[in-house]
Simulated assay, not measured.
Amino acid sequence: MKVYIFFAALVAAVVIIECSHTFMGTNVLRQQVLHRDVKYSSRMFRKRVELFNFTMPASFGYGRSIQGILAYDRTNSDASANVTSGGLGFNYLTLRMKSDRGNDIHFDVYIYA
């Protein structure tokens, strides 16, 4: 009986903790091209929307493309990050970041090729 109570409490804790991290592609055996700490301040009573643009540098060689994207939400709020153009299989990326109402935008962005 105690096992069922523990399991129910664990499931409830997992359901309550909600994150809005974005994971696309893979980083297994891939070279990290970019790590950026993206931070924007909040606007009172409003959601903030910002775009993050990235183009693969020529130093990584012709024909290389993005194989993995990770946008990790550091605020643990209902912020979101979505790929609007480019992304996996392309050599460029536009990431649209939207904050929760009245909160900062703070993402760790990792890109792998």
Rank of each mutant, 00 (worst) to 15 (best):
M1T: 10
K2R: 10
V3S: 10
V3D: 12
A8G: 09
A9K: 03
A13G: 08
V14N: 07
V14Q: 10
V14K: 01
V15G: 11
V15S: 05
V15Q: 12
I16Y: 08
I16M: 00
I16H: 08
I17Q: 09
E18H: 02
E18Y: 05
C19K: 08
C19Y: 11
C19Q: 09
F23R: 07
M24A: 14
M24R: 10
T26N: 12
N27D: 15
L29V: 08
R30T: 10
R30K: 12
Q31R: 12
Q31C: 06
Q32F: 02
Q32W: 00
Q32E: 14
V33A: 13
V33R: 06
V33L: 03
V33G: 06
R36V: 15
R36F: 11
V38M: 00
K39Q: 09
S41D: 13
S42Q: 12
M44K: 09
M44P: 13
F45S: 12
R46I: 04
K47S: 15
K47Q: 15
K47C: 13
E50P: 09
F52G: 05
N53R: 13
N53I: 00
F54Y: 09
F54T: 03
F54G: 01
T55R: 10
T55L: 00
M56E: 08
P57D: 03
A58P: 13
S59M: 03
S59A: 01
F60K: 01
F60S: 05
G61V: 02
G61Y: 05
G61K: 02
G61P: 13
Y62T: 10
Y62P: 12
Y62Q: 08
G63F: 02
G63Q: 12
G63M: 07
R64A: 01
R64E: 15
R64W: 10
S65P: 08
S65V: 07
S65E: 14
Q67T: 06
G68D: 14
G68R: 01
L70T: 15
A71M: 04
Y72S: 09
Y72I: 07
Y72A: 00
R74Q: 14
R74C: 15
N76E: 13
N76C: 06
S77M: 09
S77Y: 06
S77T: 15
S77N: 14
S77L: 08
S77P: 07
D78A: 01
A79V: 03
S80N: 15
N82R: 01
V83Q: 00
V83F: 00
L88D: 14
L88A: 02
L88E: 15
L88P: 12
G89K: 03
G89Y: 05
G89R: 05
N91V: 05
Y92A: 00
T94C: 02
T94F: 03
T94G: 00
L95E: 07
R96A: 02
R96Q: 14
R96G: 09
M97D: 12
K98P: 08
K98R: 12
S99H: 03
R101W: 05
N103I: 01
I105K: 01
I105S: 07
H106A: 01
H106Q: 04
F107Q: 04
F107H: 08
D108P: 08
V109K: 03
